[in-house]
Design a protein around this nucleic acid. Structure first.
Lengths: 255, 255
DNA sequence: GGAACGCTTCGGCCGGCGCCGAAGCGTTCC
DNA sequence: GGAACGCTTCGGCGCCGGCCGAAGCGTTCC
């Protein structure tokens, strides 16, 4: 014990944390929480740094295993390396930003924040009031048990297969259901494979649609009908008023 | 969007990550994962830095909400601020240290690592081969369900109350059961309130005992009997051979 | 009271790193 | 082929922050 710490510290935890300890890199990761691939230039503009700076940051993030890159022609597309990384960023962000989420600087930012609070993706699942409402409905119907952990019930499993028509794959390394702390609601919503399947299904069938380039969503008429029929969900907050699309891609924190 | 990043970056995620991005502070937090309070001097010696250096680091960690301090006379005792922080550090460490855990530098360090791999505390619950074995036994008996999430079954709840004789409190903010990734086993073990109750019970009743000053544990004869009786657990690895106590407090990663 | 002790504050040193603009390279478009 | 474009590399600048030893303060012990 107590071997004196040599020049560079080989503490893996610190090396990983250092990747997220820079404002620009953190901004990148939060933006990538929408689950999609961004080009290097998009991220540079989003964070307000020079292309060269962004390039170096991206190399470090990729090298550290947090990001996966995909090169296409003269573009470098980059996305979170996987659900575990998304979870890590989410958790860290959730712990960091209790009060910080609600600090609308400009009018446009405030509108964007309102849209995000209504419905959004959180990496590959649904979040915001919509995500929490769905999670609550699943729980109220006995499909999801939250009283002694966080797991789908047998009825829940068959609900996915029969009612939703999207059976859950078994046996993957990823947990079928796990709680993810919702930033704006400060409650848990459904994540894991089940959350991803639900979100993908909703997008495929046009129940929700992307607003602008960010991760904000709106619930379509078909979505309202489907959610009412499948989960008895009614009275979801109306979509945010039509907004200039560009207002919705601002960074506003994580999951 | 895209407001050019001003001098100091007000990204909460980055500020939080920065606290853990230093080798010395990370070493502190990993040491504190044993769930107990350490004095400033102990941590300074453990990390191999001057008292003044440690003092400054501790102030930052306390200020950032990661650590809670308690002053007694001329001592400053410090511990992790709560289970959420422990979870954060665990997760980060688990993600950072896949291969790094198995790098025994010296003979003593290797022995210490072996003891830790057998049984240890992970903040307030049991980890290592013991923790995973218990979790597996609970699952095999249908007391814990891991197939569609991670939750105790009704039988599991009554097992705690009736068999173990330590009923689980209901309705707290903390989840009753949650998975915690085990460093050495690369599998999940039981954490959350249930994990804490189980660990506390085992320590109270002398089923396990602390080895030295670190978080390594050994299973006593009474422990073997109790685990066999309650969970059918047999053939737990024998305790590590008797070791110089000091060898067991070295830093060797997280949960 | 005095000595030992644990912790904190202060100066000062030094390395790391985030930033940029310029220049270079490969791709795409015309 | 040439121009525009996206990204990367390089050199250089400046600041942040981790480190220490010395000095100071309060507590504990004798």
């Amino acid at each position: 014990m107590m071997e004196t710490m040599t020049s560079t510290t080989p503490v893996p935890l610190a090396a990983l944390a250092a990747l997220l300890a820079d404002g620009t890199r953190a901004t990148f990761c939060l933006a990538l929480l929408d689950g999609r691939a961004w080009s290097a230039g998009e991220l540079a503009r989003h964070a307000g740094v020079a292309a060269s700076t962004a390039s170096e940051h991206l190399s470090r993030l990729v090298g550290g295993g947090l990001l996966a890159e995909e090169r296409q022609g003269r573009h470098r597309y980059v996305r979170l390396a996987g659900p575990e990384v998304a979870r890590l960023v989410e958790d860290l962000a959730a712990h960091a930003g209790p009060g910080a989420a609600a600090r609308p600087a400009t009018l446009r930012a405030a509108s964007a924040a309102r849209a995000l609070a209504g419905a959004r993706t959180c990496y590959d699942h649904l979040a915001g009031r919509l995500g929490v409402a769905i999670t609550d409905a699943l729980t109220a119907r006995g499909l999801l048990r939250q009283d002694a952990g966080f797991a789908l019930s047998d009825e829940g499993l068959s609900w996915f297969a029969v009612e939703l028509g999207a059976p859950l794959p078994g046996g993957g390394r990823r947990p079928l259901a796990r709680p993810c702390l919702d930033w704006t609601e400060r409650r848990h919503h459904l994540a894991g494979t089940a959350g991803a399947v639900l979100c993908a299904t909703a997008l495929e069938r046009g129940w929700v649609g992307r607003i602008g380039s960010g991760r904000a969503l709106n619930v379509t008429r078909a979505g309202h009908e489907a959610l009412a029929r499948l989960l008895g969900l009614t009275g979801l907050a109306a979509d945010a008023a039509p907004l200039p699309v560009r207002a919705l891609s601002g960074r506003a924190g994580g999951g």
